[in-house]
Simulated assay, not measured.
Amino acid sequence: MSESHGVWKPQNSKFYYCSFTVAGNRFNGSTKLASKKEAISFARRWKESEVEKIKKAASNPAGEMTLIDAVTRYMREVGDGYVNSGDYESNFDWLVDNIGPNTLLYEIDDDMLAQLVALRGGERKYGREEEEFVSKTTVNCCVVKRLRALLSRAKTWKVRLPDEPKWTSHLAPERRRVRTMTVAEELAFEKWAADFWPFILFILLTGLRRRDALIRWSQVDYEANVIRVRMKGGKDHEVVITDDIRALLDAAAEDGHPEFVWQCAVLRGEFTGRRVPISYGSSLHQFKRILRLARIENLTLHDLRRTAGERMYRATGDIAAVSKFLGHSSIELTRRYYVHVIPDDVELRMIATAYARQVMRERALARQTVH
């Protein structure tokens, strides 16, 4: 056995098999190799791998937690409380399917993460071949950041992770999106939007995400003059009810739905024409339909949130107010992702600079004349 290194070729088989024992556990199977030399190398690598796993387990006794157990505990402790808990569930489902439910947490290392990133990046949006590949932002969020959140939480459960991935090295550079809705596009969209327009206008006025903008009447506090929402990450946020927002709410109240604020008519099927509450899914479908009718390209629902933030910034120049308006945790986040300078902004500032220069020149000339 020592000469064969636990490798042999059964009768009527073109492949070599191998067998070895590590810590009392027997491992055997086909190497799927026809060369004895290659089969021996394969068996040696396999055995070294199993020995390494045993060493990790010995140095990491609390790490005997499987991926599925960790996901279940994470969702129970924190994930289910998130407004976007459904996104977390779908992301974790993908990870469990592609990593394996019984994979131990300490087995998730840089090599595994790199393979997952490549796999997710090669998938198409919505799983449809006619769509483009998922964005780098999606890969970063749904794979790297989700796993990082899970393993960070696991460390609070005293799970040791000796080979925890170097997370930042797996984050792909994201192309910062700067698309906003122009006033001309807003007018074109409104022309085709019909009873879906109040919901869109509400987003433009409040800067809320699509999910957060689907409010219920229980969230509207007329006495305090605010609308209370729970944003991504479970953060509480209040929207001031301005005159424009109040007008939208008053008009929506006339429809008389007892729970949901925003409604629109069903466009097809046996319930055509019936007004029903706008849902998370139907809002996207309606939005894309109207974009096609209005011939507006490359605009997303989330771009409306950016539009709201940028319009406030251009009107006030107050980045701190914009950050609070959008419910961000830091001004830097607002500055990086939601506010950018466009050519019109540059022109306006050039005009303002030229005007200030002229005023200073006139004042200097006036002083020279006096003296």
Rank of each mutant, 00 (worst) to 15 (best):
V71D: 05
A172W: 14
K125H: 03
A188H: 07
E164G: 04
L116E: 03
R148L: 04
V144H: 07
A172F: 11
P165T: 03
V117Q: 07
L119D: 12
V71E: 10
E190F: 01
K191N: 09
E129R: 14
T168K: 15
L104N: 07
L116C: 07
V83R: 15
K125Y: 01
L151W: 08
S85Q: 07
K125L: 01
L150C: 09
M65G: 01
F189T: 03
N98A: 01
V134Y: 10
S135E: 01
N102W: 10
E132L: 02
P101H: 13
D163N: 12
M112R: 12
G122Q: 06
W167S: 03
T138Y: 04
H170K: 13
N91W: 13
E164D: 10
E64V: 08
P162I: 00
Y106L: 12
G86L: 13
P61E: 14
L119T: 09
G127L: 04
K191V: 07
L113H: 06
T180G: 06
F92T: 09
H170P: 10
G86E: 14
K191R: 13
P61T: 13
T66N: 06
F189W: 06
S152E: 09
C141N: 05
L151N: 06
N60I: 02
S135G: 00
S59N: 10
K55I: 11
V144W: 06
N91P: 04
S59F: 00
R76K: 09
T66H: 01
G122M: 08
L151I: 06
T182D: 12
L161Y: 11
E174T: 13
